[in-house]
Amino acid sequence: MSHDLKVLVIDESPVRAAILKEGLCDAGYTRVEWITDTANLSGRIAALDPDVVLVDMENPNRDVLEQMFQVSREVKRPIAMFVDQSDSAMITASVDAGVSAYIVDGLKKERIKPILDMTISRFNAFTHLQRELDDTKTELFERKVIDRAKGILMRQKGISEDEAYGLLRRNAMNQKEKIADIAASVVSAADLLS
C-alpha cells in the first residue's frame, strides 16, 4: 500500500534518519525526504512542500522552523503537532522519544498517526542501540584497564594473573567500588611513579 503524503525528516544523525526513512518506506511512504544541515532551509522546504515535517529535538534549528512556519508565504504552514487534545498520549510519547512533528493544518489525525507511531518507535530503537553501543564501549574500555592493572600487579608483586585479579577484586569489595575504578587508580598510580 502506498501513501501520497510527503514527509520531510530533519535530523543531524544520518544513521537515525536512515533507520526512520527505511521504516517509512517499508510502510508505504515513498515520498520521504531527509535533510541534515539547515542551510537555506526555507528554500528547500518550499521546494519539497512537505505535509509532515519531523525534527529531532536535539536540533537547535527547531526555532528557525517555528519562525518559518509563522511567517512564510512560500510554504504551506505546518503547525506544531499539538493538533488535538485527544492526541496527548501520542504527543507525550514523541516528546519522550525526542522527536517533534509539524503537520499541515487540516490533515486528518488517522493519516498522521501511523507516521508518528513509526517515527516514535524508530527513534526509541535508535536510542536503545546507541545505549547498547555506549555500554559496549564502556565495557571494552573497562576490560582494557583491568588487564593493564593486572599486568602492573603481576610485574611488581611477582604474582599470577589470577592472584592479581583476586587482589583487585578484594580491594574493590573492601572499598565498595567497581573493579574497573580500582584498576584505573592502579594504572594512574603506576603512570605517576614510572
Binding site: 529535538m57 536535539e58 536540533n59 522552523l65 499539538f82
Partner: peptide, 14 residues
Amino acid sequence: VSWANIRDRVNVGQ
C-alpha cells in the same frame, strides 16, 4: 537547545 522544546516539554508536563 530551543524555545520550541521548552514549550513542548511544558505542554506535555515534562
